[in-house]
Each structure stands twice: as C-alpha cells, then as structure tokens.
Simulated scan of single mutants.
Amino acid sequence: MLNTSTQAADTLHTTLKSARVMQSVRFHGPGDIRVDEVEEPVCGKGQVKMRPAYVGICGSDLHEYTAGPVLIPEHPHPITGSTYPASMGHEFGGIIEEVGSDVTHVSPGQRAVVRPTIYDGTCCACKQGKYHCCENIGFIGLSGFGGGMSQKIVAPAGHFYALPDNVTLEAAALIEPLAVAWHAVAVSPFQPGDSVLVVGGGPIGIGVVQVLALQGAKKIMVAELMDNRKKLCTKYGATDILDPREVDVAQRVHTLTDGVGADIIFDTAGVEGALAGAIPACRAQGAIVNIAVWEKAPVIPVNKLTYNEVRYIGSALYDEGSFLDTIRAISTDQLKPADMITARIALSEVVDKGFQALLDHRDQHCKILVDVQS
C-alpha cells in the first residue's frame, strides 16, 4: 500500500499535469473560429498523446467555417459525447509524446499519422466490416477527441499509425485526403487503359489524378476552371484539361475518346451544373463516382443515367486498406504530394491566412498546412 505522502505526491502530479494549458483552434459557430487556451489532455489507458506537427485545412473545415455546424455536433455525439466549441483539424501527423500502459504498436518519440474516422463498431455497417460507413460516423477534429490544430491531442490508440522513416511530417498531413482519392478509385470499376473524366481539380481531384496515373489510365481528362489547379493536374498526370467556360465538356470528352465517352467520371466538385454537364460525357454502361459532399441535394437527370445504364456510385471516405495503401505509395515515391502544398502558416494565422485565404484566393491555393508548433 502507498503511504499518504506518496499518494499526495501522485495526486499533486496528476493535478499539475491536468492543469496545463495549450492552444487549440476551435469552432464556436459559423464565421467564428478562435485560437483558444484550453486544458491540455491527459493520456490514459488505451490512449496515445501526440504533439501534432502539420495539419491540412480541408474543404469540410471550410464548410464548417462558412455554414456550420455541419459535421460538428450541436448535440452530444453518440460516440464521443462532444459538442461545439470543437477543436478542429483532421488531416495531420506528429510526434508521439506518451502512450497508455497497454499500447504497444507506437511508442514515445515516434512519428505517426492519425486516421481520424470514429466509428461505433456496433451498427449494421460496422458489423459488416464497413467501419467507414458507420451510421454514427465521426471524426477527430470535428466530432471529438480533440483536433490536430491543437498543441497536444489524446485519442484512442487505434487512430495512430507509425510512419515510415522516409515519409515527412508535411506529407503525413496529405495522407488523409489522398486516402479519400485512393479509396474512390478502389471502389470504382476502373481498369488500366480506361479513359477517365475528373470533375474538379481541387485537392481530392488532384489526388484522383495521381492515383489514376499510377494505376495506368489511358486518358485523364479534368474539368477545372482555375489556372493553378489546371497546372497541378497536368503536373500530376492529367492528359487533357477542359475549361467548362471554353468548351462543352461532354462534346470534348467524346472527341478525345473517338466518340465513345469516358469509362468513368469522378465527381469531386459537388456542383449541380457541373454534374449535369458531365453525365452526357459518360459512355454506355460506364460509371460515375461521387466523392463530393453536397451542401444541398442536387437535381439529377436520372433518365440519362437509365437510358445509358450508367452506374452512379458513392465513395465514402476510405477504409483502413486504402489508408495503409496510401502510406505505402507515398513511402515508395509513387505518390508525391509535396507540390500540392501551397502555403504553410502558424496556428495564430489560421483564420486570416488559412480559412479566409482559401475562400478569398482559391485560385492561388491547393493545400494550406498549419504548422502547429511554430
């Protein structure tokens, strides 16, 4: 049995440890994101404590900023119990600082990436092993367990994956969005030699272009408006860039494919007019894969899908296999995300030089990284 002085010392140590404060970027409401001082989390059994390094600002983060709460819970999340104000940032890696006594797959001092998807393990989708389709899906950085835009984070150990030595911490911040792209190609009927149209050349669209080029697409056509994104798509393997202001996208696709049409269309834009214009570009018995998260439900010309027996497929996030495949592809230099990074900013600059820059100067940016420790 511990003597009382030892017990008192342990209590004092725990109190001091939990009383530490840190900075965290938190959502308080639409247009209201603040760098707050919050209590530093304490690592317990089955948990890992990380010092985040670089964090990507995602399109879903922008949706929260402009129109949230969307995925951020207004009422206690069924898994985490969290509500807003919520710590943000779900595309990140960092340095492991501490692990629970029962954690063996990562260790202090190790570099790691976070897979942010939170699932309950009990719903019908989870029982089928489709954890990324969980009925109560949540995300670190949106739904609880803190977020990467914090000086420290503690979460269940299963969210942390050790990084190969040659994967930088900057690249780690691109693993999550590239896994979205990898999974979308994996769930599609894509075959090497296919001709593909990608609608939207943002970070996910550029990721899809990279994966398609790696896996042997014959033609990679991208419908995009912004010059900087056109250049990045070309750099990463796009064979043809189609500006909808200058050409009829469907007609141009048919011309480029000798009248056949695209075997597969990947929609990363989530814009009704762009989707309606792209559907006629698909060949008979082709497929359209939706990756976009739509802010409001679109009107879809279903008859055009029916008459040509075009399959419309949803791609939700990524499974663990796609996440691990993405890490391996970066490690083996098959995916090279460095050129997607268009700015690096400090935690204190996250609103003006991060969120607002992406909203006001989208034509200048692809992926902005927040350097949490700067």
Rank of each mutant, 00 (worst) to 15 (best):
R328K: 15
D165C: 03
I368S: 04
K353F: 14
E295I: 04
D339H: 05
G207F: 01
H105V: 11
G146T: 14
H159Q: 06
L142Y: 15
V222I: 06
C134R: 08
D339I: 00
G94W: 00
G146M: 10
H159E: 11
L16P: 08
V260I: 12
L242A: 15
L178S: 09
L178M: 10
G121T: 03
A67C: 09
V198Y: 11
G200T: 08
E40W: 02
C123S: 13
A329Q: 07
G144V: 13
V196A: 10
V302M: 13
Y236L: 03
V209N: 01
R362T: 12
T122N: 15
F145W: 12
H254M: 12
V293D: 15
D165S: 13
D333T: 13
D10K: 12
K336H: 09
L16N: 10
G201V: 09
F145V: 13
E246H: 14
Y54F: 11
T83M: 04
N290C: 13
D352S: 05
D227H: 13
A223F: 01
D227I: 12
I341Y: 02
E295H: 09
D360C: 00
I288D: 00
N136H: 14
L256I: 05
G146Y: 01
Q110I: 10
K218N: 08
F190H: 05
L256K: 07
A186R: 15
E91R: 06
L305I: 06
E176Q: 09
S143C: 15
V260T: 07
E37M: 15
G314S: 09
E320P: 04
S24A: 05
R229L: 06
A86Y: 05
G59C: 08
V35T: 08
L71Q: 06
G46Y: 11
S188C: 07
D32K: 15
C58W: 02
R229C: 06
V299E: 12
A172S: 08
H365S: 02
G138K: 13
T234N: 01
G216L: 04
T11S: 12
I327S: 09
G144W: 00
G261M: 09
A155S: 15
K152I: 02
Y161A: 00
A276L: 05
K218T: 04
E224K: 04
Q285C: 10
V21E: 12
G200R: 00
Q215G: 14
R311F: 00
Q356L: 01
D194K: 02
A67H: 09
L347S: 07
T239L: 08
S101K: 13
Q356P: 00
S60L: 04
S87Q: 14
R111L: 12
L347N: 12
K49G: 15
R311G: 05
P192V: 10
C124L: 10
R362N: 09
E40I: 05
I220W: 01
V167D: 01
P244A: 14
L71R: 02
G29I: 02
I206A: 11
Q128A: 03
V106L: 11
G237A: 08
P280A: 06
Y54N: 08
S331H: 08
G100T: 03
V154S: 10
C124W: 04
T239W: 01
A269V: 07
H361E: 10
T11H: 07
D61V: 04
N136Q: 13
A287M: 02
V103Q: 08
G147Q: 05
T239V: 07
V247Y: 06
A112D: 11
I368K: 00
A250S: 15
D258W: 00
Y131K: 01
V208N: 03
V289G: 08
A157C: 09
I95Q: 11
A287I: 00
M22V: 05
